[in-house]
Design a protein around this nucleic acid. Structure first.
Lengths: 189, 189
DNA sequence: CTCCAACTAGACCAATCTGTCTAATTAGAC
DNA sequence: GTCTAATTAGACAGATTGGTCTAGTTGGAG
């Protein structure tokens, strides 16, 4: 493992923790390098700027979610399990022990503090669109493509709404309620 | 009208515009007073601190939503109209011509950049809980109280999810789709 | 007209922000 | 063992942050 990659990943880990817990604007460069245990120049050797670090953070979080999803998908068998794998990826993420409390979806939170034209918002929008797309693919094995698309959108709304409300409450209970709701919707197909 | 109230409302107006468009941490005191056309001391005569201004902003936004809702409620007649008044309040808000683009729910966005214990998060959580409560009250005229509560939660998830996704897209189309979904759900009762 | 409270502009403060630079140290490849 | 590229700690820059203070102006109520 190249030492450069090591410093880079330490920075991404630290940024993930601090950006999630305190927000992006509220987290300074100095806090990130202190948490990472790394020199300031290592940050600027690996990332163009703070915005570059933020963009890398958003992409890493998307990848992280995809890995949680794929692990759940591998453990499932039927299309219903595929849909629930997506829901469980949200739950796994919510319950991955946050030291400073659960605050909802890190990507939605990040988008919320980025201005209208910021490229980071496009990353988040793309992630959410991909989630809906994965839902639709699984549902197409359960019903016709019209209903699959409509249901994918509906489940996407339910999921994003549930994680937002759950983040406000500070725990994942509302996400579990959304899961049981979605489970019975999909089982009924 | 007392001059103190005038400066205070100019500050709240300016804060609402800037906090919504650029986020809270990204908006400095100086930007707020410049937008308001007011001296810095007028801010600190009317608000304890920036946090105080933020809390006032959150409360004002909640009140603003309640007024949109009440206006829609007055124009409706049956319980179905009551539920749709809530949805329309979201839509009215989304389409109230944002100069710098639609970025979703201002209260959710604000909560997203407040740390876990911040009192501002409680204001937002209370607002969302009240919305769900209003939904439940209308639905209790349409079905039994068990189903009303379940449906109120479900519609709350749909609404919050739709406005989050819509904010990422930058326009209100997804909210309209949520409205037609909710309309047929409630009409079927 | 007087008085008083709210307002004004702007200097000022200490702290923090992102980002740059340097000089010394480390560690892996050859 | 040498060379090279990454890393280190920390000084430094200029801008900006939230907040305080002062001195002078404004405008409506009595």
């Amino acid at each position: 493992m190249s030492p450069r990659l090591d410093a880079r990943s330490k920075l991404l880990d630290a940024a993930a923790r601090l950006f999630y817990a305190h927000g992006i604007s509220a987290t300074g460069i100095d806090a990130v390098i202190a948490e990472a245990g790394v020199a300031k120049m290592s940050l600027y050797n690996n990332f163009e700027s703070k915005s570059g670090l933020v963009a890398a953070y958003l992409r890493a979080r998307h990848e992280e979610w995809l890995e949680l999803y794929r692990a759940r998908l591998d453990a499932s068998s039927d299309p219903v399990g595929g849909v629930l794998a997506i829901v469980d990826a949200y739950l796994d993420h919510a319950e991955a022990g946050y030291e400073h409390g659960f605050r909802g979806c890190g990507l939605l939170n990040a988008a919320a503090e980025l201005p209208a034209g910021d490229p980071g918002r496009a990353i988040v929008a793309g992630h959410k669109a991909q989630v809906e797309d994965l839902l639709r693919e699984h549902l197409e094995s359960l019903t016709d493509s019209r209903q699959a698309a409509a249901l994918a959108e509906q489940i996407s709304f339910l999921l994003e709404g549930a994680i937002s409300r759950a983040g406000l409450e500070g725990h994942s209970e509302l996400l579990h309620r959304a899961k049981s709701l979605i489970t019975s919707m999909v089982r009924a197909l």
